[in-house]
């Protein structure tokens, strides 16, 4: 295990490359999923408000 982590003396180079990979691909995935959830929520709210407005036209409201 220690030998594996040591990477034949190149540990800083190899592990920083794999670390950057995890950080960038993981970060992209997380950011994309969060933006997706936010957009879904926003659209759902707007559509709900729009259908409510359609059912009850502005002229009938007090």
């Amino acid at each position: 295990m220690a030998e594996f982590l040591h990477m034949g003396g190149y540990a800083p180079y190899v592990w920083s490359a794999y670390g950057a990979f995890a950080l960038i691909v993981g970060g992209l995935t997380l950011a994309s999923l969060r933006a997706s959830a936010r957009a879904k929520r926003e659209l759902k709210d707007l559509e709900a408000r729009q259908s409510r407005a359609r059912r009850k036209p502005a002229t009938e409201s007090p």
Binding site: S32, L33, A35, S36, A39, E42, L43, L46, E47, Q50
Partner: peptide
């Protein structure tokens, strides 16, 4: 795919607004 779907939803939300 995820990001394009998000962009389409945002565009639709903008149109509704």
């Amino acid at each position: 795919i995820v990001r394009t779907r998000t962009e389409i939803r945002l565009r639709r939300a903008r149109a509704i607004r």
